[in-house]
Design a protein around this nucleic acid. Structure first.
Lengths: 189, 189
DNA sequence: GCATTTGCCTAATCATATTAGGCAGCTTAC
DNA sequence: GTAAGCTGCCTAATATGATTAGGCAAATGC
């Protein structure tokens, strides 16, 4: 029989595509094997198990997202950088809902440490360079930004905003305005 | 054989407890049947299927959470109300991680309409009565608050904040301060 | 060209989800 | 108080997915 040429890389990429098509929770070893025209058992030469597959997809998504954000951020500062970061984040989630869901997968500490998670934190901190914040306020602000972006995108994807006016694009712009104003005028205790 | 006295209600409650103990994603028809000492098939007299069970747990969680928030909000206004709402939300998630995860389940539109989701939106809006916001800014602010609370709680539960100082309680307080300041000074376009 | 490695297969086991049909226990009517 | 019937849980069966052990053929190294 001709070999299918499976590798962990190809399986991970195909898994990511599958996730975007049918949802991350429906990414299964069987479905992936089907997509490659091989038997389920064949994947176990390349993947430890189902969890391993999901973790790899999550790491792929985190890295892709970090790359996008880095590109969007290049050469920008202040509110420009804030908007670029936020839009890169939101656009990725809309274009790749399955990967975005994968990126939320809870990773064990060692895996998380080796992931692109740290880059995300660094880049968020970079945005704040355009504002006048020192520690520990900077960390509080990093966490706030992370919460808003993640929370907004999650809720928007879940349809929580879809059945009421005004439209979400308008809200998104106004939230960015509000965050910019808040960062320029961060309350001291 | 003695009957186990299954009902959809009891199964839902037990499913919610199971979710808090082992995680919402591990709530399974089999596990629930095991807990009641009955065969898997027996549950299908009370539940349509596995998805139905999950939906019922989600609706239970949404209703419980709305009740808690309503109780916390009673008699408060302004920043007091903001903090009460936020803390009720966060505390529920910490005490009932499985239920909180269930509450994020994507519901189909009819189910969502019949859920306590509307109460959550109403209560968020009620907080804003203590601030001077008119439409459409009020809606933008409702969405911002929802995003921050949901995003923060999700990230905190996922451990995203756990490996860095300062501690999350401090950040949480400062975020509430920041939101209060922002709502009192909401930027007009 | 042969030996070895390696990739995908067959076969088996186990867990979960789900449906169909059966029998016992509870309820109700007399 | 007992027969009729409904209901609730059971047995049995099927399907899908995860996973492991062991085999054969294809690519690779010499």
């Amino acid at each position: 029989m001709a070999r299918a040429g499976l590798t962990a890389e190809r399986l991970t990429r195909a898994g990511a595509e599958l996730a975007d098509e049918v949802g991350f929770d429906k990414v299964t070893v069987s479905a992936l094997a089907r997509r490659f025209g091989v038997k389920d058992a064949s994947l176990y030469s390349h993947l430890k198990n189902s969890q391993d597959l999901k973790t790899r997809i999550a790491l792929l998504a985190l890295a892709e997202l970090a790359d996008r954000v880095a590109a969007a951020l290049a050469g920008r500062a202040g509110k420009d950088a804030l908007a670029a970061f936020a839009n890169a984040y939101r656009d990725y989630a809309r274009e790749h809902p399955g990967r975005y869901a994968a990126a939320q997968l809870r990773l064990d500490p060692e895996t998380a440490a080796a992931s692109a998670g740290g880059r995300h934190a660094q880049m968020t901190r970079a945005i704040l360079r355009g504002y006048d914040l020192t520690e520990p306020d900077q960390t509080h602000a990093v966490r706030l930004l992370g919460s808003v972006f993640h929370g907004y995108v999650s809720l928007e994807m879940a349809g929580s905003f879809s059945h009421s006016a005004p439209d979400t694009q308008e809200t998104w712009s106004r939230i960015l305005d509000a965050l910019d104003a808040l960062l320029r005028n961060w309350p001291r205790p």
